[in-house]
């Protein structure tokens, strides 16, 4: 059961990443492309945290409940990486949405096919 759950979490993470990649590559609307970026980010974060999980472990935080006892702890490195990646993903999303608003004010459309000239 444990292995099945682990592989189903990996499968869901890859599925979310592929769904986000589909939205980035195939959609025509600019806001939809940014939403696809967010979905891709979510799948990647889930995959990283699931790789670092050890069955039966507890969180790598020291508190009076675990000090002095023999406990198993999960891997803290992927959690620290993901903690940084979430904040950076939010920054990327904010900059991309600001660019979308600027493009809409210049060209009066959000369809990516109608924005032809690269010069602003």
């Amino acid at each position: 059961m444990q292995e099945f759950l682990t592989y189903s979490i990996y499968g869901t993470a890859f599925f979310l990443m592929l769904l986000g990649l589909y939205a980035v590559l195939m959609k025509k609307n600019l806001v939809k492309i940014v939403i696809g970026l967010t979905v891709l980010d979510s799948g990647l974060n889930l995959l990283f945290v699931a790789v670092g999980y050890i069955s039966g472990g507890t969180a790598p935080i020291f508190s009076p409940a675990v000090v002095g006892k023999h406990v198993i702890m999960t891997d803290p490195v992927p959690q620290a990486l993901v903690l940084t990646a979430i904040v950076i993903g939010f920054g990327v999303t904010a900059v991309a949405l600001a660019l979308v608003v600027r493009l809409y004010r210049k060209h009066n459309t959000t369809n990516i096919d109608e924005i032809k000239n690269l010069k602003w």
Partner: peptide, 17 residues
């Protein structure tokens, strides 16, 4: 998606994330 992802992180023993 963000709500459920938070529950998944909690179940994978990463409460700070």
């Amino acid at each position: 998606i963000s709500l459920v992802l938070s529950l998944m992180f909690y179940l994978l023993q990463a409460p700070d994330v």
